[in-house]
Simulated scan of single mutants.
Amino acid sequence: MSGPLTFLVASPHLHGEVFGGTVILLLEHDEKGAMGLIVNAPTPQPVSELMAGAEGQDTPAWLGGPVDPTLGWCLYPDALELDGEISLVPGLNVSSSLDVLRAVMESGQTYMLVLGYAGWNAGQLAGEARAGAWVWVEQDTPELLWDIPAAGRWSEALRRLGVIPSTIMPGGAQA
Rank of each mutant, 00 (worst) to 15 (best):
M1Y: 03
S2K: 11
G3W: 09
P4S: 14
P4W: 05
L5H: 09
T6V: 14
T6L: 13
A10R: 05
S11Y: 08
H13V: 06
H15D: 08
G16R: 10
G16W: 07
F19E: 04
F19K: 02
G21L: 02
T22Y: 03
V23G: 13
V23L: 14
L26R: 12
L27Q: 11
E31T: 14
G36V: 13
G36T: 10
L37S: 10
N40C: 11
N40V: 11
P42H: 10
T43N: 01
Q45D: 14
Q45P: 00
V47W: 03
L50G: 07
M51T: 01
M51G: 00
A52T: 12
G53L: 09
G53R: 09
A54W: 09
E55A: 15
E55D: 15
Q57E: 15
Q57G: 00
P60I: 11
G64D: 07
G64H: 12
V67T: 05
D68N: 15
P69A: 05
P69K: 03
T70S: 14
T70Y: 01
C74F: 00
Y76H: 06
P77N: 00
P77E: 00
E81K: 13
D83M: 07
G84W: 04
E85S: 05
I86L: 04
P90R: 10
L92A: 02
N93T: 03
N93I: 00
S95W: 02
S96K: 10
S96F: 01
S97G: 10
L98Q: 15
L98N: 07
V100M: 05
V100T: 07
V104R: 02
V104D: 00
M105F: 06
M105I: 14
L113G: 00
V114L: 03
L115G: 01
G119I: 04
W120L: 12
Q124S: 09
L125C: 08
A126F: 12
A126E: 15
R130G: 02
A131F: 00
A131T: 01
G132S: 05
W134L: 04
W136V: 13
P142Q: 03
W146A: 07
W146L: 03
D147N: 12
I148N: 05
I148L: 13
A150V: 08
G152M: 10
R153C: 11
S155D: 13
S155I: 11
A157Y: 06
A157W: 06
A157M: 11
R159Y: 02
G162T: 07
V163A: 02
V163E: 02
T167V: 08
P170W: 12
Q174F: 03
Q174D: 06
A175F: 14
